[in-house]
Design a protein around this nucleic acid. Structure first.
Lengths: 130, 130
DNA sequence: ATTAAATTAGTAACAATTATTATTATTGAG
DNA sequence: CTCAATAATAATAATTGTTACTAATTTAAT
């Protein structure tokens, strides 16, 4: 799929890998424009799609708004605050046994699973008290 | 939020509740047009949003394409085939202990969590063999 | 029945994403 | 190293999924 290298794609990989905030395509675009003032938003979208398809990064689909991307491809769960909409990683073991369990239940082949926890983050919880 | 009834909304609830295939707004629209030839797509979207906000149905966000809706609001996990993109329910206990665990880890308030398993369904697995 | 408010159909607007096209950059063969 | 082949790009147009708007209709409480 990916056949030649490019500075833009390298910068996109770097950006996603370095950030911890699960950015959207637009946020990555905004960041990269500082170093590459005429990078195209289409290039960002195209490369995020290629990179996630190739397994270099992970795409996270959100109920509201744009998809987000995670440079950490190791299996882990996420939490999303329903107030500020931010996503953060959860430092908790992933139950890989579930994959085999689901395989049996559905007679399917299971590659992986993802989990998203919903609630109110510590910051927004605090604000609510005021 | 919802203050008055309407035939259209009742039909939308019925459709989502009766179907087992986690339809998109467009699919529900297509179905309802058979009985309500001039129902508006906007009405379908607006009511799906209201109904899921009110907890009558559940919205499922997918990595590719449109959101899907589930008439079964009981907590359960989903499986999505990466080939045919269909979503099906998994008849497996939901680990509700995880919510409390995440609350402690993040000092957050956790309402719920969802899980999506990815792989190849039995049908598509079969087809691959041919 | 009257009336006020909610809901609708239809359409326009919008945001996120993908496709197109002409141009530029990368790479591998000679 | 040069240069053609072709992958990747910037810019822009088009598409898709969704929401907002408005005038007309329907609902429910007098």
């Amino acid at each position: 799929m990916i056949k030649k290298s490019s500075k833009q794609r390298d910068a996109i990989i770097q950006s996603v890998k370095n950030r911890r905030d699960h950015p959207t395509a637009d946020e990555i675009y905004a960041q990269l424009r500082e170093s590459y003032p005429n990078i195209s938003l289409g290039t960002v979208y195209r490369n995020l799609a290629k990179l996630s398809e190739a397994g270099f990064i992970t795409r996270i689909s959100c109920i509201e708004g744009a998809d987000r991307f995670d440079g950490d491809t190791s299996s882990h769960y996420h939490f999303q605050c329903i107030t500020c909409r931010k996503i953060c990683d959860i430092d908790m073991d992933v139950d890989t046994n579930l994959n085999a369990k689901v395989e049996k239940l559905l007679d399917a082949h299971v590659d992986d699973h993802m989990a998203m926890f919903f609630g109110t983050c510590c910051k927004c919880k605090g604000l609510a008290k005021i």
